[in-house]
Simulated assay, not measured.
Amino acid sequence: MEPVIDQAFAAALYSEGDAGLDTGASLLAADPTADAELFRRGEEFVRRAWERGWQPADVVRVVRRELDETAVGLAASLIASETGRYEQLPPRWRSQLDGLPAASPRNRPDRFSYASALLGLYRLLLRLPAIEPVGPPPGASPHGLHLPPAHDEPRMLTRIRALLAKAEATGFPEEAEALTTKAQELMARHSIDEALLAARTHSKEAPGACRIGVDAPYETAKAILLDAVASANRCRAVWNSDLGFSTVVGFEPDLEAVELLYTSLLVQGTVAMTKAEAGQRAGGRKRTKTFRQSFLMAYAQRLGSRLAADTARVTAAAEVETESEAAGVAAPHLLPVLAARDMAVTDTAERMFPETTTARVRGATDLDGWTHGTAAADRARVGGTGPEIHGRRRNR
């Protein structure tokens, strides 16, 4: 049994092109007794991915990007089986596992096609590079590692999630604007409260990190949008364009805010872009790709500039508020607290990514797309009269 698998691996995993895959798949298809060991070897490849810094959502994302949905289903089965060995999993893993695609029992491929798909998946897993870890692999000792506390989602985040879901679902721009603004106010208050609480209790909490997918098409504009949202939440985002994700570094409450807000703004922007594009088509224009690229670039740039402009105003107002509340009481002032957290986040990001480069952004070429994207960013209402998400922009 093992010699057949070894022969198949030698032919398929360490060669280029389809010829090696066909040879390996033919060997495996002819030997049904190899199936159990073949799957076990796949679990081992997944386990090696964890050791190189990958997490379940990362693996699924890169498999979908490089292969097809059949391979995605196989990867999900391997991940579910491999992670089932552990009594405890690192933070964030449970939600990633819950989001794995379900393997469909229908249309199971024949033995040759199944073996070919599995070998293609193994070849990809074998070649995954080491990436910056954003937490320990499953089974690692937590001693000496900073782990965000495992807890149920705070009630504040549940409210924020509900508000953003309504903003995405409504067909009325004014309602979406009001809902998004309210969600932003709650995020800002939650972040400030967490920062002040940590200062009062002399918490030893350190910044953590998470990865967020930045998928094609128009990934440059999406990465810029994510960077703007991260900066507004006192986080730092570093984009890996080759692997299709950004790593966001920050304190746990702020990381949660980044994930929520970025996802919501991207959904709102996509909906607005689709509506604007339909209007352009109705007028007889055909430049769909350039319109969308310019729209999303303008949308991201405008949101970034508004977030940066809001930072100084809202932070100053919040500092006045905390000084008034702390009159006569030994309590931390907001600005030094936020400055210390900014420094901790920056230091952590620089340790994780000692070498970064600045990506050249392709210019927008469609004036109508830029105009509509800017207007959509204004309608997303990242601003207002209440407290806002605030932070410091970091150039990558």
Score class of each variant (00 low, 15 high):
residue 20 G to Q: 06
residue 22 D to K: 14
residue 26 S to C: 00
residue 26 S to Y: 02
residue 27 L to W: 03
residue 30 A to C: 05
residue 36 A to L: 01
residue 46 V to G: 00
residue 51 E to R: 05
residue 54 W to M: 06
residue 55 Q to S: 03
residue 60 V to C: 11
residue 66 E to P: 03
residue 68 D to F: 03
residue 73 G to E: 09
residue 79 I to T: 07
residue 81 S to Y: 00
residue 84 G to V: 05
residue 91 P to M: 06
residue 92 R to V: 00
residue 92 R to Y: 14
residue 96 Q to S: 01
residue 100 L to P: 03
residue 102 A to Q: 12
residue 102 A to V: 15
residue 109 P to K: 12
residue 114 Y to Q: 14
residue 117 A to V: 01
residue 119 L to F: 00
residue 124 L to T: 11
residue 125 L to N: 04
residue 127 R to A: 15
residue 132 E to A: 11
residue 138 P to F: 00
residue 138 P to Y: 04
residue 138 P to T: 05
residue 141 S to F: 09
residue 143 H to P: 09
residue 144 G to Y: 02
residue 147 L to R: 08
residue 149 P to Q: 10
residue 160 I to E: 05
residue 161 R to K: 04
residue 162 A to P: 00
residue 163 L to K: 08
residue 164 L to E: 10
residue 171 G to W: 06
residue 172 F to K: 15
residue 173 P to T: 12
residue 177 E to S: 14
residue 178 A to G: 08
residue 178 A to Q: 14
residue 179 L to M: 06
residue 185 E to R: 12
residue 186 L to M: 10
residue 188 A to K: 07
residue 193 D to M: 10
residue 195 A to S: 05
residue 196 L to G: 09
residue 197 L to N: 02
residue 203 S to D: 12
residue 204 K to V: 15
residue 206 A to I: 07
residue 207 P to G: 07
residue 208 G to V: 04
residue 208 G to D: 11
residue 214 V to C: 08
residue 216 A to M: 13
residue 217 P to H: 12
residue 219 E to S: 08
residue 221 A to M: 01
residue 222 K to G: 09
residue 224 I to N: 13
residue 228 A to H: 08
residue 230 A to R: 03
residue 231 S to Y: 07
residue 233 N to R: 09
residue 234 R to T: 08
residue 235 C to N: 11
residue 235 C to V: 05
residue 238 V to R: 03
residue 241 S to C: 10
residue 250 G to S: 04
residue 254 D to Q: 13
residue 258 V to G: 04
residue 261 L to D: 01
residue 264 S to E: 01
residue 269 G to R: 08
residue 271 V to Y: 07
residue 277 E to N: 11
residue 279 G to E: 11
residue 279 G to K: 11
residue 279 G to M: 13
residue 287 R to A: 14
residue 290 T to I: 13
residue 290 T to M: 02
residue 291 F to L: 05
residue 292 R to Y: 02
residue 293 Q to V: 11
residue 295 F to W: 12
residue 295 F to S: 01
residue 295 F to K: 01
residue 297 M to T: 12
residue 298 A to D: 07
residue 302 R to M: 13
residue 305 S to C: 09
residue 305 S to A: 11
residue 305 S to P: 02
residue 305 S to G: 09
residue 311 T to M: 01
residue 318 A to L: 14
residue 324 S to V: 15
residue 326 A to D: 11
residue 331 A to Y: 08
residue 331 A to E: 11
residue 333 H to S: 14
residue 334 L to T: 03
residue 335 L to C: 01
residue 340 A to W: 01
residue 343 M to H: 12
residue 343 M to K: 09
residue 343 M to D: 15
residue 347 D to E: 15
residue 351 R to I: 06
residue 355 E to A: 05
residue 357 T to D: 07
residue 371 T to E: 03
residue 376 A to K: 06
residue 380 A to F: 05
residue 383 G to N: 12
residue 386 G to C: 04
residue 388 E to F: 13
residue 390 H to E: 06
residue 391 G to A: 04
residue 395 N to M: 15
